[in-house]
Design a binder for these strands. Structure first.
Lengths: 127, 127, 127, 127
DNA sequence: GTGGTCTAGACCACA
DNA sequence: GTGGTCTAGACCACT
């Protein structure tokens, strides 16, 4: 059972106007995609996380369940929650993030009638 | 007599899981940025719009209020609502959209530890 | 907005030893598959259901959210929850139920070393 | 000297999201019904099993207790645990498995308003 | 009115 | 110890 660092409030940047669990999912997902959280690593327990992040345990549970639906973490009953060892799932997730980001930009470009190059140039213009 | 634009339900692509007014704002904003809705064009009244789009009048009101806050439309009491003739406001809005799209991509790249080029390549990979 | 009958406690057969929301999902899913709940029908609201079934609103919400993940119902913000009009999703769900049932029987047969016919005969034997 | 069966991790297919002891019971029960584990065969001790399967000893205890409750295994104090030699108990268990599998299919069929034949045909349909 | 999020706290099964 | 379910009740945004 590999060691696990407990989260601190500095590990997350939270926007109080958006659902907390959603932001936790996004940011933990990024940590896994980045490799900062390695396959097989045990995540801090629901209660521990709730205490250290000062949120309700059910909020953490919702976060973990969502990550499990994304196949990024696995729960072993009575033992805890672990980053999946299926590296394929992690690769897929990372690719999904990349595709979504690019697609979003393409859609913005199209919606305002610009090519990607034009959008890029416009964003870079000073003033 | 300014041109007038009447909406039909086909003018918008709506996702029921997101706030409708937000989607209307985004899509009308894009139409203005694209020039598809020209400066000075008169928009249909709140009641008309609500009827033709089959949504609640308050949803349309919120949409128009938000677009007014962005200085993209102006309301002349008793006369109606018009796309602004301040081309500067439209340019600014278009630029904001471009900057936001690029920034969003940069943040995704950073969050998963890739450069923009790597993110781009990953999104383009087949399979 | 089509009418909707409110659930009564007789609409569900509940086993207290299993998660309630899971049983609600199964049984509502069956009602949709069976055509008893037609496409476009509005489901009773979360609060109303909670009151009539004597359960907590969050339990009903979990039920509805799970059904939404199965693409069997759709939520329109501020308006309520409706059986999907995508008949394809309903067909798919119905087929999944059938496949699961058959597969489960095949696996049982295989696990005890019988053919389907033998399993069937054995189940039918009297005494 | 009775034959003895030692488990390896490959003897079981485990789904971490379900209780482990339950899955052990099901699968050992099937092995006995199938005749793969013969009457009189000695099972390894709780501690041995826990070690070879890498699970908690209490999980194995619960498994053995449940199998004993089903009269499929018997424990002789100080001598060990053995597959029952009461062939009647094994027959009964095999039949219960068959009945349960058929009943489950019948209930699925009924719940979605199909006959068994229709359910079967639906499950077999291509696409 | 609708659904959605969050909290606080109880209770349970599993390992 | 772990996660999972359920309750009661507050508060919010959207229509």
């Amino acid at each position: 059972m590999p060691p696990i660092r407990t989260w601190t409030m500095d590990d997350f940047r939270l926007d109080p106007s958006r659902p907390l669990y959603e932001q936790f999912v996004e940011q933990i997902r990024a940590m896994i995609a980045k490799g900062e959280l390695e396959p097989g690593t045990r995540l801090p327990s629901v209660r521990e996380t709730a205490a250290s992040l000062r949120v309700n345990p059910t909020t953490v549970m919702k976060t973990y369940q969502e990550l499990e639906r994304l196949s990024l973490i696995v729960t072993y009953r009575g033992q805890g929650t672990f980053v999946t060892e299926e590296e394929e799932a992690i690769r897929r997730s990372r690719k999904e993030l990349a595709v979504a980001a690019v697609r979003q930009m393409e859609e913005t470009a199209k919606s305002i009638g610009l090519t990607l190059e034009q959008l890029w140039a416009l964003a870079r213009e000073k003033e």
